[in-house]
């Protein structure tokens, strides 16, 4: 799930200052779970920006980052879109850009996009994957050191480990200690010596794309 955070209300007001007719767009998937872009937050945004402006429509899209779904849902708002000066998107950055491409309109990003999160429960989101494109989880007892080590080390603990603790996040164990313990408990400690090459950045530089070939 994409974890997002609300920008400050004052920032949104400043960004929307010159636009008089707005459409507020929410996301009923990730941003709804984060309570940053669900229907409640869409209403709050309409209230925040309604003073002195016209809110032409509010809409919650199932996956605004999916251009097919955005295009389908915006078809129902053709008239409002025509009259709108700008849209305010309570979505992740992909959603903002998909909406801009689909509508051709100015879109104000009302959220900051933080990370790809594992959900424990509402309000407890944890980064576990950096989508680096070179997954080593099969050697690391399904624990990602690229994400959980502040240095992103792919091959064992660094020299700064204090006992079992990380020197940067010293309230936590070093992730490589945790990996070693889990591998050892499974009788797979030999995997700890597996060498992981540095990523080949010639194949994973931004922007990344995946295009399926037609059969």
């Amino acid at each position: 799930m994409i974890v997002t955070r609300k920008k400050a209300p004052q920032t949104i007001q400043e960004l929307a200052e010159r636009y008089k007719k707005l459409i507020i767009v929410g996301c009923s998937e990730c941003a709804a779970v984060c309570q940053t872009g669900g229907s409640e937050q869409v209403k709050e945004m309409a209230t925040l920006l309604g003073n002195g402006r016209e809110i032409l429509a509010t809409i919650s899209i199932e996956s605004p980052c999916d251009k097919r779904i955005s295009a389908r849902d915006f078809r129902r708002l053709e008239k409002e879109l025509e009259g709108a000066d700008a849209l305010v998107a309570l979505t992740c950055g992909s959603g903002v850009q998909a909406i801009a491409e689909v509508t051709g309109k100015k879109v104000i990003a009302a959220l900051d996009t933080d990370f790809l999160g594992m959900v424990e429960r509402l309000g407890r989101f944890y980064e576990r994957c950096s989508h680096c494109g070179h997954c080593i989880l099969n050697d690391t007892a399904e624990i990602c050191p690229v994400t959980l080590c502040p240095r992103g080390l792919r091959n064992g603990p660094c020299e700064n480990i204090h006992g079992t603790r990380c020197d940067v996040n010293n309230d936590r164990d070093c992730v490589w200690h945790t990996i070693y313990e889990r591998l050892s408990s499974r009788g797979e400690a030999e995997r700890f010596a597996a060498y992981h090459e540095p990523p080949d950045w010639s194949t994973c530089r931004s922007p990344r794309e995946e295009i399926w070939e037609r059969k």
Binding site: N155, G156, P157, C158, E159, N160, I161, H162, G163, T164, C174, W176, H177, I179, Y180, E181, S184, A189, F192, A193, Y195
Partner: peptide, 21 residues
């Protein structure tokens, strides 16, 4: 040479790796 922490478990396993490689 390579810097290493001193300890058991993961630290010792990594130290062995560094010396072997």
């Amino acid at each position: 040479a390579a810097r290493s922490a001193v300890g058991n478990g993961a630290i010792a396993a990594r130290a062995r790796y560094l010396l072997a490689h």
